[in-house]
Every structure is written in structure tokens, then in C-alpha cells.
């Protein structure tokens, strides 16, 4: 009952993380299997969705200073970097310190048909949403045979 945080809890955490990493190592996302792929656990966590009109990248990064954010797209390479400041200077004793601090960068290879001129980024409730439009599909052209 006494003492600090339960040792079992941190052990469970560790097991969960281990299990999670292990599974992700053996079931890699085919889309992220290039040389730029990163291990799960990189900050910030990211979800990417694809629809016929756009590719939507969601970065789960709470408490960012949007001035520190740098989002750039070169051809189909999306790079997001930023910095997160420590939450406080006032602490006299820390019991847990799990939140990410410092600089981060993540780079993604997007599908080839994204249009670098159609990028829109919004930050809301701690989620950075980058929407990249797709190029108009090349319409099939009928070739007349004379």
C-alpha cells in the first residue's frame, strides 16, 4: 500500500510495450516499409488515411506551439518537425515524467499522385491534420483508329 507507484504497474507497461513492439516488428505496414520507416513509438504517433481525393495525415501531438511547427512537402515527401517545451518549471518533486519533450521530426513517403500545390494543415485539439490533395486522375483517352 505504501511506497510510490506500484512496481507491477511499470512492469505491465513494460510487457505491453514489448509485446506491442514485437508485434509491430512482425507485421510491418507495407506502406511504410521503405528506408524511412520508423519503429512504432516514435513521437508523435501518426495515422494516415487515403481517399480518392486526398491523403490525410494526422499527427497526435498535443500542446504544440504552432510557431515551432515546420511542415514541408517536396514531391511526395512530407516532413513535419517541431518542438515541445517542458510543461513546467515549478515542480519540486517529480513522480512521473512520461510526456515527450524536445524536438521531433517525422518524414513520410506519400503516394506518387499527391499534388504539392494542394496542401492544407490545421491544428485542433492537439492533432495536426495535413491534407494533401491528389492530382486529377489521367482520364482514359480514346484513340481513334482510322
Amino acid at each position: 500500500m505504501n511506497g510510490q507507484l506500484s512496481p507491477f504497474e511499470s512492469l505491465l507497461d513494460e510487457l505491453w510495450r514489448w509485446d506491442h513492439d514485437w508485434r509491430s516488428d512482425f507485421s510491418p505496414s507495407p506502406w511504410f516499409s521503405g528506408i524511412r520507416s520508423v519503429r512504432q513509438g516514435s513521437y508523435p504517433p501518426v495515422n494516415v488515411g487515403s481517399s480518392p481525393d486526398s491523403v490525410d495525415v494526422y499527427l497526435f501531438a498535443a500542446g504544440l506551439d504552432t510557431d515551432s511547427l515546420d511542415v514541408s512537402l517536396q514531391h511526395n515527401l512530407l516532413s513535419v518537425s517541431g518542438k515541445r517545451a517542458p510543461a513546467t518549471e515549478e515542480a519540486s518533486t517529480w513522480y512521473r515524467r512520461e510526456r515527450f519533450e524536445g524536438e521531433f521530426q517525422r518524414v513520410f513517403t506519400l503516394p506518387e499522385d499527391v499534388d504539392p500545390d494542394k496542401v492544407d494543415a490545421t491544428y485542433r485539439d492537439g492533432v495536426l491534420h495535413v491534407r494533401i490533395g491528389r492530382r486529377e486522375a489521367v482520364k482514359p483517352r480514346r484513340i481513334e483508329v482510322h
Binding site: 515542480a91 512521473r96 515524467r97 510526456r99 515527450f100 492537439g126
Partner: peptide, 19 residues
Amino acid sequence: AGDIFEHEHGITIVLDMPG
């Protein structure tokens, strides 16, 4: 993910809950 710390006036919990 959370930070928990004590200071002069009490205890503060900071949690990341993006979204």
C-alpha cells in the same frame, strides 16, 4: 502519457490527450 509532479501548493497531473 502523463507527468505528475508536486509543488508548493499541491500536486499537478498533466496528460496528453490529443484529439
